[in-house]
Design a protein around this nucleic acid. Sequence first.
DNA 1: CTTAAATTTCAGTTCTGACTGAAAAAAGTG
DNA 2: CACTTTTTTCAGTCAGAACTGAAATTTAAG
Lengths: 175, 175
Amino acid sequence: MEMSPAVEKYVLHWGEMGTRWGTNRTVAQIQALLYLSPRPLRADEIVDMLSVARSNVSTSIRELQSYGLVKMTHVLGDRRDYFESPHDVWELFRIIIEQRKQRELNPTLSMLRSCAAEVEAETSTDDITKERIKNMLAFVESVSEWYDKIREVPTTTLQKLMKLGAGIAKLVNKR
Amino acid sequence: MEMSPAVEKYVLHWGEMGTRWGTNRTVAQIQALLYLSPRPLRADEIVDMLSVARSNVSTSIRELQSYGLVKMTHVLGDRRDYFESPHDVWELFRIIIEQRKQRELNPTLSMLRSCAAEVEAETSTDDITKERIKNMLAFVESVSEWYDKIREVPTTTLQKLMKLGAGIAKLVNKR
DNA sequence: CTTAAATTTCAGTTCTGACTGAAAAAAGTG
DNA sequence: CACTTTTTTCAGTCAGAACTGAAATTTAAG
């Protein structure tokens, strides 16, 4: 049970990128492995392929499940757990974005709201600073609202939007 | 030289978020401080406010400068360096996105390209896996191209786009 | 040119959190 | 219900990154 050179390269890179995003290396590597795998994998197979401790795989998969990035399946007459990841890149993208909103945008939003409220009463704080907090709040709020709306848009439309690129500017300004 | 409670809360939260993104706590805290400050700050002032070592401020500012998030200014008759951050949230946003593209998207793109090329020759690799690599490559390529185009769009247009939200779907599909 | 102020470098320390491995728990099996 | 297999928990280890503080360097003033 071993990875081909290209798959190994992919998995290692993905692990590296994972550390830049919220998660750790192993979690990202497992996700990559499951994304590429033509069939669901067992924990012990993942242990072999990645050369990490069984327990590490266990906790990593739990984390991925909590993100909605991995689901468990079973094979008839086999009591071991099998795991798989969504195979559609757009679905993966949506799930990841959603998670990041939950973990980063939302907490930041509530922090900014309470800061904006509190700072009003602070006579010692410069007006410019107050303004800056408000501006950041308005920005994050608008990103958040935009996301809430865009979430519902179907993949095909998003693909068209991507293709359009800067062309979107004309549409928006002209209408 | 100390921060008001609201400002302190802001700075601490920003530092925390910084660790989720690429950087470390101090770097993000300094950026937050400079964003909020009504005037450029000196390194020693930052040391006081954040209670970190002078050398830490020095290296953190260097990092911020390399990102284009901090620039140095001077006061007549004072040889100490003063630092400030862009105050426009959209500009900040652009700079940060640009950095992330450089550091994450571009390397991933070249990894995927070489993987997609290599994997073709691997007879042992399942066709499904080859397909998945291609799909991911196509996706990341399209995000990258989209970004290159959108980069030029002026802030005002982006703001309109945000306001539009899901309404954009109609525009795109109708035209 | 000497001295003082400001900044940077860097070796060493500290801290964080990822990872391991053994033990416990859970989930089937006969 | 005793036994086996599989999974999870958790205390301890380890590695890497962040941070400190002292020494070196740079910069400019007298």
